[in-house]
Design a protein around this nucleic acid. Structure first.
Length: 583
RNA sequence: CAGGACGUAGGAAAGCCUGGUACUCCGCGUGCCUUGGGAGCACGAGAUCGCUGGUUUGAAUCCAGCCGUCCUGACCA
């Protein structure tokens, strides 16, 4: 392809509003252009990379035995009402009505396709003999993001691969799940991405039923905890805190005292006023678990983990109690709750680290007053200790004696054992060998294709631009003739381009009449892996200058036989990405 | 949803406080010159200063409302 025959609007300056590297570079390199917050046009280079990522996903899905189909973006809203997801998704759902002659049809643009695929497959599958089966598609999904951000990373419209497995037994589901898990590992390896499968919220099946595939990145929105020693990795919602010393330090107990703390309702304010460290405070949170108020105690410097609390309590729903409930059960306005002398007798749960708290500070259950010298056993009792807080960097690993590292990351994939959630609500059943009817046992598996690109760029760039691996690069090789008006230069460039293209190499020829500096800058910016410069210096000696994007120095190769050599390099790199990974 | 910032030509960005002809750089067009890391000179085209209303002799500038964009947090099957 000739540069002047395609469309590559590069930018020298960073457009206003772009902050993180992947967003800045995708705009500057002419990969994408914003249409509105949360919606982007894919320009030729961006589209080529996006398609390459999608193709890798497709090939590995096919290899794993999944069957491709394409479901529509539009679906009847009634389908989403049946599963209760109109409410569950809320504003995320993009819905509108279509006039159809004398009536109106309520339509929802699919944020995912469980309802649609289950509805269809339930009519096709009636016997256990028709399973297992896994279907997938690569289509545009719609999720209204109230706050789109980070460029292509978080948009309201995005390309997603979603697969759905249907099995007759939980054991069989395990095999379907494992096949997808393995396919995901191959996909991200082929994309040359550094990725981390982490344990995630397990849902109805329980146990080892959900993994997220994460790209560790500074600007990632998700947080995972990872043990380098044993490999344990989990998202923050899920990550357990390992065993640690919970014996209370042997220090004399202070007297319980009331202190005035006017308008101090936060840990920060109280610790600042009383000159006590946050970890010397105990947060007292009033939750409403399935509608019933409960007290949760967390050390001041820790964060309550609502998923853990809900699991521990076995509750369906959990939310912070309303201010009037808090006022009633504590006898104080929000911000002054404490476990000592609550207005109402409530179950008190506490995170394990509270066991170590001594002479702590808590709210006094009275406006503008806190207590100091609060001690477990003497001043209050706890009904149950459990792991109720979010793990933090440096916490002990739950699987070995090492410690956890906190890493920000970008979620690019998710595999999930769904169980019978949707098949039950949609009446999707099959008959077993004894003609007994059971709901289909499902799994769902998603990959954000756009995020593969954003994640790759976010973790593979330098000061000058993108550094693509061959697997995802819009073109594999860039030919840069320095003197476009020189006949010899251009004939060598044209021949090289044609020979490479004939050999199946994706080659871009920068035929612009621009000065060398401009071409070099753009070459670095768009990040094509292999750059071949044809200039007067080398040409005199019958040589070409070649350089991988991630290398500092170029090397000269003979013009004679250059095409063959370059083809060989690219073909080799396609196979194993060894040069990219070993850079 | 809470808090904050911003909106001036295709891109970046000054002017706004203190009201009067919109500064500059990049890009674009023409010509000369130059040709290995975003060259130089000259001439030129390109702007309803986000929108609506108000104040004023006069509004990019002051006031009000709205729209849009970005950031932090909340939310995220």
């Amino acid at each position: 392809m000739l540069w002047t025959r395609t469309f590559i609007p590069t930018m020298k300056e960073t457009p206003e509003g772009a902050e993180i590297p992947s967003h800045v570079l995708m705009l500057r390199a002419g990969l994408v252009a914003q249409v509105m917050a949360g919606a982007y046009t894919y320009l030729p280079l961006g589209l080529r990379s996006l398609r390459k990522a999608a193709q890798i996903v497709r090939e590995e899905m096919d290899a794993a035995g999944a069957i491709e189909l394409a479901m529509p973006c539009m679906s009847p809203t009634s389908l989403w009402e049946q599963t209760g997801r109109v409410e569950a998704f809320g504003n995320v759902l993009v819905s509108f009505s279509l006039p159809r002659q004398n009536r109106k049809v309520q339509v929802t643009l699919g944020p995912t396709h469980e309802e649609i695929v289950t509805d269809y497959m339930s009519r096709q599958i009636s016997s256990y003999r028709q399973m297992p089966i896994t279907v997938y598609q690569i289509t545009t999904k719609f999720r209204n993001e109230e706050r789109p951000r980070f460029g292509v990373m978080r948009t309201s419209e995005f390309l997603m691969k979603d697969a759905y497995s249907f099995d007759a037994t939980v054991e069989s589901l395990g095999h379907s799940y494992d096949a997808m898990y393995a396919a995901y590992c191959r996909i991200f390896e082929r994309c040359s991405l550094e990725y981390l499968p982490v344990e995630a919220e397990s849902g109805p099946i329980g146990g080892d039923a959900s993994h997220e595939f994460m790209i560790p990145a500074e600007n990632g929105e998700d947080t995972v905890l990872h043990c380098v020693e044993c490999g344990y990795a989990a998202n923050q919602e899920r990550a357990e805190v390992g065993a640690r010393d919970l014996v209370r330090p042997d220090v004399p107990l202070d007297e319980l005292q009331r202190v005035d703390t006017p308008n101090c309702t936060t840990i920060e304010q109280v610790s600042g006023l009383l000159k006590r460290r946050p970890q010397d405070l105990i947060k007292t949170l009033i939750y409403s678990a399935d509608g019933k108020p409960v007290v949760v105690l967390i050390r001041g410097d820790h964060e309550a983990n609502e998923a853990k609390i809900r699991r521990a309590m076995g509750a369906e729903t959990l939310e912070l109690a309303e201010p009037d409930v808090i006022g009633r059960v504590t006898g104080a306005p929000v911000g002054f709750a404490g476990p000592v002398r609550l207005a109402e007798k409530l179950p008190i749960w506490a995170d394990r680290d509270v066991q170590r708290s001594v002479n702590a500070v808590t709210g006094a259950n009275a406006a503008d007053v806190h207590l100091t010298g609060v001690n477990l056993g003497r001043d209050f009792e706890v009904d149950r200790f459990d792991d109720l807080r979010s793990a933090v960097d440096g916490d002990p690993c739950p699987r070995c004696s090492s410690s956890l590292r906190l890493r920000h990351s970008i979620e690019v994939g998710h595999v999930f054992k769904l169980g019978t959630k949707y098949s039950e609500s949609l009446g999707a059943r099959f008959a077993d060998e004894k003609e007994q009817l059971h709901p289909l046992i499902m799994g769902c598996y998603g990959i954000g294709v756009n995020r593969i690109l954003a994640g790759l760029i976010e973790t593979n760039h330098d000061a000058n631009g993108i550094v693509w691996p061959v697997a995802l690069a819009p073109y594999e090789l860039l030919v840069v003739p320095l003197k476009v008006n020189d006949e010899e230069t251009m004939s060598v460039a044209g021949k090289l381009h044609d020979d490479l293209e004939a050999a199946g190499i994706e080659v871009l020829l920068d035929d612009r009449t621009a000065r060398p500096g401009v071409k070099f800058k753009d070459a670095d910016l768009i990040g094509i892996p292999l750059r071949v410069v044809i200039g007067p210096r080398g040409l005199k000696e019958g040589k070409l200058e070649v350089k991988w994007r991630w290398q500092e120095e170029a090397e000269m190769i003979d013009l004679e036989g250059a095409a063959e050599k370059l083809v060989e390099w690219i073909v080799q790199e396609r196979k194993d990405s060894a040069r990219f990974l070993g850079r």
